[in-house]
Amino acid sequence: MAAASTPSLADLQQEFPFLVDAAMSFAIGEVWDRPHLAPKSRELAMFSALAALGRDGYPQLRLHVQYALNFGATPVELREIVNLTLVTAGVPKALNVAPEVRAVVGGLPRDQAAAAAETAGSRRARGEATLSSLNGGPTDISADAVLGTLAEDFPLLVNAALSFALGDVWSRAILDPVGR
C-alpha cells in the first residue's frame, strides 16, 4: 500500500486539523466527488499530475498509484503514464517516478507495445501519422503551428518531437487517445 513516509489524514489530524478538514470537505468531498470523470480516470489524472510535479509530488504518488489500481487501472497503464511523463515532464522526473510505481505494483510485465511499435514503420512516419490524428487530418509539418515555426532553426528538436515523442511514445496503443 502507501509508503511509510506518506502520512494518512488520521496521522495529521492532531497537529493539522484545519488541513484534514479542508482535505475531507473540499478536496475529497466537493472536488473529488464530482461526477464528471470516472474514478479510474480521475486517479490516472492525479497520478499524471503528481508525476509531472516531480519530487514534491512523490510522497502522495504511491498512494494514488494504489488508488488507481483499486479503481481498475492496470500496471501496464501506469507504466504508460510513466512513459508519457518522459515526454511531458522530462527524463529525470520519469526516472524518479518509475521506481515509485514499481514499489507499489511490484515487477511489471514485459513491455510488448515497444516491440510492436518498432515493427509498425519508421519512427518519423509514426510520429507524423500521430500528429495528423491529433490534428484531425493530414498535417503539413511546415505549416504546423508549433513544429513549423521551429523547423528551420531547430530541426533536431522537430525531429525528436516527431520521431520520439509522437512516434515512439504518443503513438502507442496502451492508452486510448482520451486517456493519453
Rank of each mutant, 00 (worst) to 15 (best):
residue 92 P to K: 00
residue 146 V to G: 09
residue 39 P to F: 14
residue 15 E to Q: 14
residue 161 A to T: 08
residue 54 G to H: 08
residue 42 R to M: 12
residue 170 W to T: 02
residue 24 M to P: 06
residue 92 P to T: 04
residue 115 A to T: 14
residue 167 G to Y: 02
residue 146 V to D: 10
residue 93 K to D: 03
residue 127 G to C: 02
residue 145 A to S: 14
residue 72 G to S: 00
residue 37 L to D: 09
residue 8 S to T: 08
residue 2 A to G: 11
residue 29 G to F: 00
residue 34 R to T: 10
residue 31 V to G: 05
residue 18 F to A: 15
residue 102 R to K: 14
residue 12 L to V: 08
residue 71 F to V: 12
residue 122 S to Y: 12
residue 147 L to Y: 15
residue 50 L to C: 02
residue 164 F to G: 14
residue 104 V to H: 08
residue 65 V to N: 05
residue 118 E to Q: 15
residue 85 T to K: 04
residue 18 F to M: 12
residue 53 L to A: 01
residue 39 P to C: 15
residue 147 L to R: 12
residue 61 L to D: 03
residue 85 T to L: 01
residue 16 F to Y: 15
residue 78 L to G: 01
residue 18 F to N: 15
residue 109 P to Y: 07
residue 11 D to Y: 05
residue 63 L to A: 11
residue 157 L to Q: 15
residue 147 L to E: 14
residue 25 S to H: 06
residue 144 D to H: 10
residue 177 P to T: 01
residue 123 R to I: 04
residue 61 L to K: 00
residue 97 V to R: 03
residue 100 E to P: 00
residue 131 L to G: 02
residue 151 A to S: 15
residue 55 R to A: 11
residue 5 S to P: 12
residue 118 E to P: 10
residue 96 N to E: 03
residue 172 R to C: 01
residue 5 S to E: 09
residue 113 A to W: 00
residue 162 L to E: 10
residue 82 V to Q: 03
residue 139 T to E: 05
residue 49 A to F: 00
residue 24 M to G: 12
residue 59 P to Y: 09
residue 169 V to C: 03
residue 57 G to D: 07
residue 1 M to L: 13
residue 154 F to K: 11
residue 31 V to Y: 01
residue 117 A to T: 14
residue 171 S to N: 03
residue 45 A to I: 12
residue 142 S to V: 13
residue 25 S to W: 01
residue 54 G to T: 10
residue 80 E to N: 06
residue 171 S to G: 02
residue 21 D to G: 09
residue 60 Q to S: 14
residue 11 D to M: 10
residue 167 G to V: 04
residue 72 G to E: 05
residue 71 F to K: 12
residue 45 A to M: 10
residue 81 I to R: 04
residue 31 V to R: 04
residue 75 P to C: 01
residue 115 A to P: 10
residue 66 Q to A: 06
residue 62 R to V: 13
residue 124 R to Q: 02
residue 116 A to E: 14
residue 61 L to M: 07
residue 98 A to G: 03
residue 5 S to T: 11
residue 31 V to L: 06
residue 75 P to T: 03
residue 95 L to M: 06
residue 30 E to A: 04
residue 90 G to S: 04
residue 133 S to P: 09
residue 168 D to V: 06
residue 128 E to Q: 13
residue 42 R to T: 08
residue 101 V to A: 07
residue 120 A to Q: 14
residue 78 L to I: 05
residue 11 D to K: 09
residue 148 G to I: 14
residue 117 A to Q: 12
residue 76 V to R: 08
residue 91 V to L: 08
residue 34 R to L: 08
residue 19 L to K: 13
residue 164 F to N: 11
residue 126 R to A: 10
residue 89 A to S: 00
residue 104 V to P: 15
residue 158 V to G: 13
residue 153 D to L: 11
residue 157 L to K: 11
residue 47 F to Y: 01
residue 36 H to Y: 15
residue 176 D to K: 05
